[in-house]
């Protein structure tokens, strides 16, 4: 029942976002027809095009038609790349997701232990380094770092490829995430290939979130460590390791989970720069281009799909949060 209500909530959010975006792109100044047709178009051509795209009808009619299309999985035609936006997004989304998920995983896998170390060895070298890191990491010049890594690891040392997702043939299409597909189809050559390409972009995209996760874990660990139950566990002789990793981390992690829910959409935004520098064929780059080109359907479509993922990720993190913290679970 609760689950149903939440799914319903999610649908309402998506509907609202679609309406908002739909109206917003049309109300903001700018003429997509000019962009699509080029400057040599005649008046009749422009008119014809508007009729063809349904732009001559009132807004509410356009919106309802759009929604009806959505139900058939039809996002409308992009102006930049005259195909269905749904098809383009389907093609490009896995690239972005793979990048963002890998970066998130890296940020968590490195950031959490780093935050714990910093908190448990307060004012020690790890703590000092991680504090400096959280300060600089959040305001890290992604763009510059990406180019430097590329130059050093890619061009000078030839350790990793400079750009792209894969060099050889991609693995059989199952999910669109190359690593997963390669694993599922047992294609380890493609897996290594894709992994090598992922290294630098993943690192660059993970830097900011990693710093945030580290400082979040650190500060919530410190909060938790000051709680009486820690002193009590110590007094009764429970070992440090259990206290830190079983008791304190679990409580400290719930706040970090919320942060991860926030980080996810931010990272999709941040993916834009990384996708640009590493010629990564993802959806963030497509979305940014769509905005510049005033491509209505593409803007709305990309926003909707990203929104869907953000909503789902938030749903998952919230459920996890509840699972981790019995106080919230019991209140329901």
């Amino acid at each position: 029942m609760r689950f149903l209500r939440r799914v319903l909530n999610m649908l309402v959010v998506l509907l609202f976002v679609s309406l908002l975006m739909f109206v917003l792109v049309r109300v903001l100044p700018g003429d997509p027809v000019g962009a699509a047709l080029g400057d040599g178009a005649t008046k009749e051509q422009v008119e014809k095009f508007r009729v063809q795209m349904g732009m001559d009808k009132p807004l509410q009619v356009q919106y309802l038609a759009y929604l009806r299309g959505l139900l058939d999985g039809n996002f409308g035609v992009s102006l930049m790349e005259p195909r269905d936006v749904g098809t383009i997004v389907r093609e490009r989304l896995p690239a972005t997701l793979e990048l963002v998920l890998c970066s998130l995983a890296l940020a968590i896998v490195v950031g959490v232990p780093l935050g714990i170390l910093a908190a448990t060895h307060r004012n020690g070298p790890v703590d000092q380094a991680s504090r400096l890191w959280s300060l600089t990491g959040v305001s890290f010049p992604n763009f510059w770092a990406a180019l430097m890594l590329q130059l050093v690891l890619g061009a000078a040392l030839s350790l990793v490829p400079i750009t792209g997702r894969i060099t050889g043939p991609p693995p059989e299409h199952i999910t669109g995430l190359y690593l997963v597909d390669a694993l599922l189809s047992g294609n380890f050559k493609a897996m290594g290939d894709a992994a090598r390409h992922l290294i630098t972009p993943t690192i660059v995209l993970a830097v900011g979130p990693l710093a945030q996760i580290t400082s979040m874990i650190r500060s919530s660990m410190l909060d938790e460590l000051a709680k009486p139950y820690v002193g009590f566990s110590q007094a009764v002789g429970m070992p440090r390791f259990l206290i830190n990793y079983k008791y304190v981390l679990r409580n400290a992690f719930s706040s970090t989970l919320t942060l991860i829910g926030f980080l996810f959409p931010l990272m999709i935004g941040g993916a834009f720069v990384v996708e640009k520098v590493f010629a990564w064929p993802g959806v963030a780059r497509f979305g940014a281009d769509a905005i510049l080109a005033n491509d209505y359907n593409a803007i709305v479509g990309v926003t909707l799909v990203i929104c869907l993922f953000v909503v789902v990720v938030n749903f998952v993190t919230e459920e996890l949060y509840v699972a981790l913290d019995p106080r919230i679970r019991l209140e329901r």
């Binding site: 180019l147 590329q150 890619g154 030839s158 400079i162 750009t163 010629a279």
Partner: peptide
């Protein structure tokens, strides 16, 4: 022809001989 949206990346690939 590869799409390399960032010109500096493109120059890096030139330098790398790609």
């Amino acid at each position: 022809l590869r799409i390399i949206p960032e010109i500096v990346t493109l120059e890096n690939k030139m330098l790398a001989g790609e």
